[in-house]
Design a protein around this nucleic acid. Structure first.
Lengths: 223, 223
DNA sequence: ATATGGGTTAACAATTTCATAATACTATAA
DNA sequence: TTATAGTATTATGAAATTGTTAACCCATAT
């Protein structure tokens, strides 16, 4: 989880492609698109995406075939692969999962649903990190929900804690505002624009230190 | 069910209007169109549609205003009303705007997506009479007062049950706090401000899942 | 009578919004 | 280049709203 997540989407409907690309890009993902199975494989090799979203019904190679081919290559053994299927055909769904996909989504689905699925996939992948983060004088224990600065405990409210933990999980990385909203609030909940700022302010206040830097027009980072 | 369903669409973009009309007509619906809010109201009165699709951004009256006006008339108390919103405002300004509406759709969206949404809306309407509500993993039996989540029964107190059943009866719809009070407590009974919150909290706790979303300053919704 | 559980309330904490100020960014003019 | 006005973004303090916990009342069962 060091850099921006890359997603490859393959679908033969330009509309779908465009909507998904727009939404995922807005969340801070780096999106590549492909119009068919062959293009998908080619672009997968070229960009090494973290997640591949495959439509099942595509001219030429179907998503299932693409998935099979990718899984044969060592480079894509661990890559997240998700199927998009228009059919409510259960046989197909099962077949897809057996093939080595990590999840499947039924189409048509709203951008919101898709986003939250995608986010939760990555979140699941993320969980394997250590529970204690140490940066400079600060120690963050994700399990005990405790922050310590130079030995003294600092009490943070839940949201404040989560926000700090997120930023501190990758010191130096700039988190886009959208990225933060997705990670902490999820895609269901919608909050106003100033909410993040206020929490940031409280963290700065309580830590008595400016370890959070504002990157205007982009987001925040921890250092 | 056998009679043709009538749909009224209001949007100021002729292109959109035409595309939607074409597709919905092809699906067997009887479609009327309106180019602005006033025309929408006028045609709604004339044709008594089963479903009204309103663009939010329209010259003259906005879709929201139209919705409010229609909802004041007894004839349209039960009519399905759906908002069309531009994708770019999703997440920021929408929020509680869906208050009087039964659902909202993001634009631009492929005709396919729209069609399936419309179809499922009508399907939902038919099911509303039934005593058993099914949403995702949750099953609510209004008659037996039993809630089941992934096979295991969950015991809810009466008020908790009624509240959940109400919210789940229209997934996605935002229920105003007042609306909830009227539906569950009636107009006679007056209870404190925190009562709803406490019940919501207990439901969330027992369901072990966050399917109830808070819409600050407005109410709650189930998804 | 005593215990139990639902429903309500009250007090306080956490979260979010709102209005306004401060700041950085951009394009244009001098 | 430098200055400047206008725009966009973030910071801040206060207010509004919601979340949480514990306590209380009341009806019913033991």
């Amino acid at each position: 989880m060091s850099t921006t997540k890359k997603i490859l989407i393959a679908d033969d409907e330009p509309d779908i492609l465009e909507i998904l690309e727009f939404n995922l890009t807005a969340e801070g993902y780096e999106v590549t698109t492909a119009k068919n199975g062959d293009e998908a494989i080619e672009k997968a090799k070229k960009t090494s995406p973290d997640l591949i979203i495959l439509d099942i019904m595509m001219p030429g190679k179907t998503g299932i075939e693409v998935c099979n081919l990718l899984r044969m290559m060592p480079a894509f053994k661990e890559t997240l692969i998700v199927f998009l299927t228009a059919m409510s055909d259960e046989g197909t769904e099962i077949k897809g999962l057996e093939t080595g996909a990590d999840d499947y989504l039924t189409k048509p689905t709203s951008p919101k649903v898709l986003l939250s699925k995608v986010n939760s996939l990555f979140r699941r992948l993320n969980k394997e990190e250590s529970t204690v983060i140490k940066v400079g004088d600060i120690e963050i224990d994700r399990e005990k929900y405790i922050v310590t600065h130079k030995g003294t405990d600092i009490i943070l409210a839940r949201k404040e804690f989560e926000l700090l933990a997120l930023l501190a999980s990758k010191p130096g990385k700039v988190f886009l505002r959208n990225e933060i909203l997705n990670q902490i609030w999820g895609t269901e909940v919608i909050v106003g624009d100033r909410t993040i700022d206020v929490h940031i302010r409280k963290i700065r206040q309580k830590l008595e230190m400016d370890c959070i830097t504002t990157v205007k027009g982009v987001g925040y980072k921890f250092e």
